[in-house]
Design a protein around this nucleic acid. Structure first.
Lengths: 141, 141
DNA sequence: GGGGAAATAAAGCAATGGCTACGCCTAGCA
DNA sequence: TGCTAGGCGTAGCCATTGCTTTATTTCCCC
């Protein structure tokens, strides 16, 4: 099983490859705000766990396993951002909260949240009603 | 700011006091599945941070700050369980997921989730509709 | 072929939390 | 009142997770 940090790296790597076609150590380091040496170490771990194939100084390639996981991680992150946005969490809190919880939810929960987001997407009136509940609760104080 | 583990202890302590009137080291240890010595250490930390007043061998008392926080933590835990239940997460996953995320959500997010839970509570038809969305999504695969 | 940017290796540190071993209190029984 | 068992406390240690620092290596391009 991947640790939270491994997931962060994998997510970042997937995104970089998706956007630029490759993932360099320095780009990964910059994105995650860590030093390059930390990246090298983690890449070696990800290689050992077969998420990617790593060749020193040459670069890396995601394995099918790594691609699949990376994709899920990126989608999961996006989903959670959408979810928090929909229910009315302030922009400033969203990023940190997603960072905090994304590694701790079962795929079962993720699926259910997906459903929930789809539920609100299908009928915007539902979001309005949610907002009404909010206003009422706020009025009660 | 309290660390995740501090929150777990505080939550447990609050619950014990609420239910039995007092919180003994051994009860806390049992509840959290740790050794008593770990409990003593953490209690000292919680005392230092003014969540409780601790007298060796005598027991402990939550301060107003500790009571307030403990209450919030217990309620937060319950809320998250309710939330996951409502959206259809399997029982077996709920406890671990709540354990995982409870320490990583801003109070803003908690409030929004509270609203969401209230939204579904007010009209059970909404839960039915959510279930319908789920069935449709499942059918699509 | 040499210089500099990028990458890697090795060692170490810091935070968090837990455990073991042992010694100390104190309630409750005799 | 005094003893003792069980609960509690202290000190020191360990593991994990990640990150940094420093020093070295490699690659690429002029």
């Amino acid at each position: 099983m991947a640790t939270p940090s491994m997931e962060d790296y994998l997510e970042r790597i997937y995104k970089l490859i998706d956007e630029k076609g490759y993932a360099r150590v320095s780009d990964i380091a910059e994105g995650l705000e860590v030093h390059p040496s930390s990246v090298t170490k983690m890449i070696q771990k990800l290689d050992k766990d077969n998420y990617l194939i790593y060749e020193k100084y040459r670069g890396l390639m995601l394995t099918p396993k790594g691609k699949k996981m990376g994709k899920r991680l990126v989608e999961r992150h996006q989903l959670l951002e959408n979810f928090l946005t929909i229910i009315g969490v302030q922009e400033d809190n969203i990023y940190k909260d997603v960072e905090g919880i994304e590694h701790h939810l079962s795929w079962d929960s993720i699926t259910c949240i997906e459903t929930l987001v789809e539920y609100f997407r299908r009928d915007p009136g539902r979001t309005d009603e949610l907002l009404n509940v909010r206003k009422e609760l706020e009025a009660d104080n």
